[in-house]
Design a protein around this nucleic acid. Structure first.
Lengths: 108, 108
DNA sequence: TCACCATTTCAAGTTTTTTTGAAACCGCAA
DNA sequence: TTGCGGTTTCAAAAAAACTTGAAATGGTGA
């Protein structure tokens, strides 16, 4: 396999392809990061995240703001929650969702 | 619809639900952001991004580092490229991919 | 206990993304 | 030209994500 000279020199200088490959993040952390990004990869979910960055809210108000069906909202909340971007705490009849530290890093 | 008192007060204080909804990012920018995140939501693509953050590389070397088939690699490169996280420039027989400014913001 | 409200769960259907292998493309050198 | 290496494109199949409406859950107050 031929490769461009400039690149070949760089690889040489850095200690070979093995070294380069060794510098890549491990599978585990790539998986983790990609899972977070997947949770963020939907406009509805980004909207919810923004909303919750202003103040914790019950599902019924999130629903009012986002304008989708209960079960659809519930699905998206669960995606954000398993990515630990939001968390929900029960309060009487409601579940109040709030953004996490981690979630906050992805808004604005 | 009943809602928790503390939340009701907050909504009141900020000028009502309409004001809150008005503060959300517009659909367009939510779509854009979610599209970027979608491109980042795969471990293979994150790995490629990391790799290219070290140095521009031809497809054949990316392939060596990532260890997947040509067409699969090409697919993932195209996803990263349409999100403008990387760009490719032709050089003789090769196409050299390099990370963009934007791409750089998402590595490390 | 019962009925009710807010919310989640479930299963089925739909859409989108990813994988695969074969075929095509493109520039170059013989 | 012709052939070749490097890379992309294509179409079909597989897998994953999303949507839908109906049914279930779980706490609460009567």
């Amino acid at each position: 396999m031929e490769i461009p000279e400039e690149i070949e020199d760089w690889i040489e200088s850095i200690g070979g392809m093995e070294r380069i490959i060794g510098n890549l993040p491990d599978e585990k952390s790539l998986e983790n990061r990609s899972r977070t990004y997947k949770a963020l990869s939907d406009p509805i979910r980004l909207k919810i995240l923004h909303l919750l960055s202003m103040h914790p809210l019950c599902v019924c108000l999130i629903k009012q703001a986002v304008g989708i069906s209960d079960s659809k909202l519930s699905y998206h909340l669960s995606v954000l929650k398993s990515a630990e971007l939001i968390k929900g705490v029960r309060k009487r009849n409601w579940i109040i969702y709030e953004i996490t530290e981690k979630g906050l890093r992805y808004v604005d």
